[in-house]
Amino acid sequence: MNNMSKTVTGKTRLNLVVAHMLEARSLIDALALQATESRPYKLFSNEQGLNLIVCGNGKLAAASATAWLAGRQHPQPAPAWLNIGICGHGAAALGSGLLVNKISDASSGASFYPSPWSGDQPSTALITVDQPERDYPEACAYDMEAAAFWPLASKLSGIDLVHCFKIVSDNPEHGLEKFAEAQVAALFDQQLPAILKLIEQLQNRASEQQQLHAAPEACEQVLDRLHFTVNQRLQLLDLGRRFKALDKLPLLSRYCDQFNGGAGQLLSELRGELDGKS
């Protein structure tokens, strides 16, 4: 990871949602994730902000696990979410790793559009079905979770930080009947470099967003020390943003550190500094 990500990704969250423990195994090893919960879901985490939840098969399971995980985490401005799993595909070769660019829910007819990715990772449309698809009627991917995961996670985090990555495990030439669970680990191992790159890029994006919106330290400290109304807090944060954008953080600290008056007076002094009036 680059230097910037090293300094910030420690706190930037990326949640991986995986249907089955077989799919999770390679990721748990590669990302050095430790088990943190076993019920109601298996949850694995590491110090770099990565969490992996094993949700189980199907839309309901994916939605419930996504909601459960979000509910137990402290709110963060821009956590990233990634659903990874195997899929059937009407046209792509076995073992292909594909980002999803359109998700259709076979039962409701609803469609969702994850944002196109800037890299060179190939992408596919995907249909989420309620039962495993054996006939592959269209030249797209088939899974059982994405249509529930994506709309929910994108509400929690924003559209541009939520993606699905699928590895083709069966297709018209190698149908589901030929698929053996023992192949999953090999499919994942083969796609690990692409997955790790995607995780890194997605986490970097999320941490850039997080850094952009982080309040200056001086604001956080003075908020702890003095009483601010909700409105005054928002004003302080906006003034803090302006000091930061103007490269005047040391000056902001000088105002905040020793200040012992009321919140209104501090706001007025900060505003006076930036706008030339108090």
């Binding site: 944002s115 196109p116 509400k155 924003g158 541009d160």
Partner: peptide, 11 residues
């Protein structure tokens, strides 16, 4: 809703 113009401008 919930799109990020800045992120999308990258691609």
């Amino acid at each position: 809703k919930a799109q990020n113009f800045r992120l999308q401008k990258q691609a």
